Amino acid sequence: MKDLIHFLRRNTLATVGAGLLAVLLVAVIVGPMFVQSPTAIDIGNKLLPPGPGHWLGTDGFGRDMLSRIIHGGRYTLAIGILVVGIAFAVGVFFGLIAGVAGGIVDTIIMRIVDAMLSFPALVLAIALAAAFGPSLENAMIAVAITMAPQFARVARSQALSVSSRLYVDAAQALGLGQGRILIHYILVNAIGPLLVQASLNVGSAILQTASLGFLGLGAQPPMAEWGADVSANLSLARSSPWTALGPGFAILLAVLSFNLIGDALADWFNPRRRSQIG
């Protein structure tokens, strides 16, 4: 723990990323207790510029933009973490199976993975979300499906590397079950690169889900969600830019914070890089 604290102190970008994420989490957890309903319509106060009473202005329906950003952040951040959690579980499971089993099992799994990776992630997510139907839940499933192959590739490469180590051979010689070896020896020693991939993918998941919301395939009105709010207020960007800039800037900060944390984790799990920083 002391080494980690010292590393964070020396890694400025990691500290910035952690600080940004902490601010966002406090805002979306505590903030809703101090702002009004994000769906409260007040036509008499529509398109008010930022000022007292509406610190980030109001949109075309008179809804408070600060309230919508804070409430929408609950969905957006939770979606990013949940999507990556689903993709992590599915991708790592099949990746480890492919790396350990080898042979025809490895070939079948990895050819499916290669076929999915041949499509641009966002294009595949759009196609899947359109096929499933526009809703926040379907958008989450679509993004999780596009991300699972990335975890499968990383998990397979780590399984191939770790399974050739002497301690795995020793565990097999002792007669330990394949499942126990897979979890306690291979997965535990391969978790570093997978955590780095997960932290980087949270930002990507937020961006892709927001993109689907922007295209009308994710969260549906009047739900407060950053991508959907950018889309709904894009036509007002010239006359009332605060309506689109607020949620857009929130997406930027969220993605930036997770990317900085992911870069810091990559340095932490790289002994040579960690010694240079520390």
Score class of each variant (00 low, 15 high):
A18K: 05
Q158V: 12
S163A: 12
L207M: 15
L166E: 13
L20P: 05
D59N: 10
V26N: 02
I29T: 10
I5L: 15
L66T: 10
V113M: 13
P38Y: 00
G19D: 04
L234N: 03
G213F: 03
F214A: 01
I69M: 15
N270Y: 08
Q276A: 13
A264G: 10
G95S: 07
R272S: 15
A198T: 00
S161Y: 08
G60P: 09
N270E: 14
F249P: 01
V84R: 02
N11I: 06
P247G: 04
L176F: 10
K2G: 08
V23Q: 04
P193Q: 11
Y185N: 09
V26G: 03
M116S: 14
Y185G: 06
A198N: 02
G31E: 12
M116H: 13
R9P: 08
G218A: 09
F88H: 03
M223Q: 15
A115F: 10
A250S: 12
V30R: 03
G31M: 09
A254G: 01
T15Y: 02
A170D: 07
V143L: 06
D114K: 09
Q158K: 10
H54L: 10
L66N: 11
G53R: 13
D106W: 06
N11P: 09
L21R: 02
P52M: 14
V196F: 07
G103K: 14
S67H: 07
A170R: 03
G95R: 05
N201H: 13
R274K: 15
A127L: 13
F94M: 11
I181R: 04
N270T: 11
V26S: 05
A121H: 07
I104M: 12
L20K: 01
V84Y: 02
V123G: 11
